[in-house]
């Protein structure tokens, strides 16, 4: 996937406010590096690059600070233990109902398939050709029996 936004900083600002002449071409990947949205190959490449590039290392520190600020700003609401247990109990009851219903549906499908198979077998066993064969065999057996 290629997108100009992906290549630029996702914060939409010039990295660290550095002059363009001072910036490194790899600096555009720092946000992706912290965001874990780079490919494993690129991740290793930036990892190696960071050891020797002060500009990128500085930007990484700055971006990490910004990421921490964002993470502190975004709520991740957690329930208290009793409320959580109550909620999970409600969810497990609901999912049990879904499971039973689905299993019931499956059993119904299997029953229908068995009935269909039985019908097919019966129609095959009592097909005209087979009935004629039964009569013929019956006649042969009875002739053998009497004579």
């Amino acid at each position: 996937m290629s997108c100009s936004l992906q290549r630029d900083s996702l914060f939409g600002v010039t990295p660290l406010g550095l002059e363009n002449s001072e910036s490194c071409e790899k600096a555009q990947f720092i946000v992706g590096y912290l965001d874990a949205s780079l490919s494993p190959k690129k991740l290793t490449e930036i990892d190696e690059h960071l050891k020797g590039c002060d500009i990128c290392y500085g930007q990484m520190l700055d971006s990490t600070k910004k990421f921490n600020t964002i993470k502190r700003s975004v709520p991740h609401c957690k329930l208290k233990k009793t409320e959580r247990d109550h909620f999970l109990e409600e969810v497990s009851l609901l999912s049990k109902q879904i499971y039973d219903k689905s299993k019931g549906n499956q059993n119904l499908v299997i029953k229908k398939q068995k009935i269909e198979f039985f019908k097919k077998m019966m129609s095959f066993l009592f097909s005209r050709e087979l009935v004629l064969l039964y009569i013929f065999l019956g006649m042969v057996v009875s002739i053998e029996f009497w004579f």
């Binding site: 709520p75 991740h76 609401c77 957690k78 329930l79 409320e83 959580r84 909620f87 999970l88 969810v91 497990s92 609901l94 999912s95 049990k96 879904i98 499971y99 299993k103």
Partner: peptide, 29 residues
Amino acid sequence: TVKESDFVSFFKKYSLDLFSFSYIYVPDQ
């Protein structure tokens, strides 16, 4: 056939994350 406990634990596992997500729309427990 998947065990009932495995099926239930799938929903239990994600329901807390889903709760946090729904809380951003309606900030009421």
